[in-house]
Design a protein around this nucleic acid. Structure first.
Length: 229
DNA sequence: GCGACAG
DNA sequence: ATCTTGTCGC
């Protein structure tokens, strides 16, 4: 599994350059953004995909697959990847970018779930995680960050990338204006065919009332209501 | 051996 | 991820 991840990282493109920029949306048209999230029960994983454009849901699909392995930090792709790929087979729309719940380049071998899915399907992906798997924030995150702040996450000894490489960002999409209550940042990283900066830009552009970008939030609740039945 | 660790 | 009530703050 680790060997496969090294191959995936080698095939990944952590920049905004594309082999065929023919399909990229012109600045005139709003991008089609997908959100994916999984929910589990005793022995299956259900993946929910929500596709949005201009604030509207234009397609929604899901798929369920048996859970093969337990959760192991660094190997999430092998637990959730199958169901996600099955859900994509049901999809008719071609998203311009996919927001994946989990890390992309912020991963020991630079091959988190978002990167795994992006390389496998050859589509642009962004990793959106609620906690940090590895890497070192450029500055302390112990104090609440103001809304709109982003702090670079650099590779340290736990990551295959050269030390100091920016592998993602802590992104504060929402924040309270209170002393006793605060919101933690999201950890955004490139999955495939997207740079660390663009990944953070996309997440910010898709977030509005809540901390999570809208496609991710809707996929989250959709997956939840599918499994609790 | 010890610590750290997406969902 | 999942198990769940109360509680804080606008």
């Amino acid at each position: 599994m680790e060997t496969l991840q090294h191959d995936i990282a080698a095939a990944a493109n952590f920049s905004d350059d594309s082999e065929d920029d023919s399909q990229r949306p012109t600045p005139e048209e709003a991008p089609i953004v997908a959100g994916v999230d999984q929910a589990f029960d005793d022995e299956t994983a259900t993946s929910a995909l929500v596709i949005m454009q201009s604030g509207e849901v234009i397609e929604r699909v899901h798929a369920t697959e048996p859970t093969e392995i337990p959760y192991i930090p660094g190997l999430l792709s092998f637990r959730e990847g199958g169901a996600i790929l099955s859900a994509f087979k049901e999809l008719e729309t071609e998203p311009d970018v996919v927001l994946v719940d989990g890390s992309g380049r912020i991963h020991f071998r630079e091959a988190g779930l978002a990167t795994h899915i992006g390389v496998t399907l050859d589509i642009p992906t962004v990793g959106v995680a609620k906690s940090l798997l590895c890497g070192q924030p450029r500055r302390s995150l112990s104090e609440p960050l103001p809304e709109g702040t982003r702090v670079a996450i650099e590779a340290d000894g736990d990551v295959t990338a050269p030390e100091g490489t920016v592998i993602g960002h802590a992104v504060q999409t929402r924040q309270y204006n209170s002393d006793s209550r605060y919101i933690n940042p999201l950890y955004v990283s490139p999955g495939h065919q997207v740079s660390a900066e663009t990944a953070a830009d996309i997440v910010e552009s898709q977030s509005s009332e809540y901390k999570l970008p809208e496609p991710t939030r809707l996929a989250d609740s959709y997956a939840g209501e599918l499994t609790r039945r």
